[in-house]
Amino acid sequence: MSVSTAAREPNVFARIVRHRADYLYIAPALGVMLLVIGYPIYDTIYLSFFNTPPSLAMADKIFVGTDNYVRILTSEAFLDVTINTLIWTAFSTFFAFALGLGAALALDRQFVGRGLLRGILLIPYVISAVAAAYIWRWLYHSDFGVIGALAVASGITDRPINFLDNVDTSLPSLIVVNVWKEFSFAMIMMLAGLQTVPEQLHRAAQVDGAGVFQRFWHITMPHLKGVTLVTVLLLLVANLNSFTIPWIMTAGGPAGSSDIWITAIYQLAFERIRFGVASAYSVILFVVMMSMGYFYVRALTGKDEATPG
């Protein structure tokens, strides 16, 4: 789009001058945006080139060039955290979406108690993440947890399972909580999408001889393509940015087994007071997120542009 704009109007500044009144109107909003978004981004990028030992005042920070980046990208811990983040994001997104779509399909039909069920399924979405994290921490508790007690009572295990203090189960346990929290959101999105499928298309397909599954495949799925793309992208971004649930439930532990990017950055910055490295970490994440944002915007607006002229 920028190409065509440039071709039409070679001089950007001439454009701005011509529309100076318009720009004046949005100037206050632009100013605030620059202040609360632009400045922190600039400052983070700036800080990422410095070493900020906890023993020094911020003013005495030491310029180290790209050392922080090199150190992060070559460290084994970064690899582990990245793998954890990818596992966390991939599994959370996939299961939250699949469950959400399933729930939406179930709710997109008339049956007794539909409103009640929809209300119940919305609870994970409306409940505060902090509250949910604490509730689940108790459910998982190795001594007093309900899940452990049920597992023992039903004879699956003879001892309560140690969900959160075990390097093998901590990350999967967190993913379960995250999926529980996020499938509601996917459900709302897909339900909204389902309600836009024209009834006549289903009737036409019925007359044309399509069964339930064929109608789902040929009518419903193509119609949900756009909303699916948006939902998955939003879930991906949210999951790459997750903080509340993992931080409250395990704080990345035990032994970094459930550490993901944001919890790692938080630890670096606010527990180990290494702002320079944390900033560099954030910049890397920023680049990843911005590329996802690019695809998100393309998915939202690309449909019209893709139409052959």
Binding site: V207, I219, H223
Partner: peptide, 29 residues
């Protein structure tokens, strides 16, 4: 079922399958 009645239907707003080409729309039944 509608599919077993061997009838064809034309709808008010055509109800064409938007993601399919004309050929595939015609081929669908």
């Amino acid at each position: 079922d509608p599919k077993d009645r061997d009838i064809a239907m034309v709808f008010q707003n055509y109800a064409l399958y938007p993601n399919k080409t004309v050929f595939k729309n015609l081929a669908f039944p």
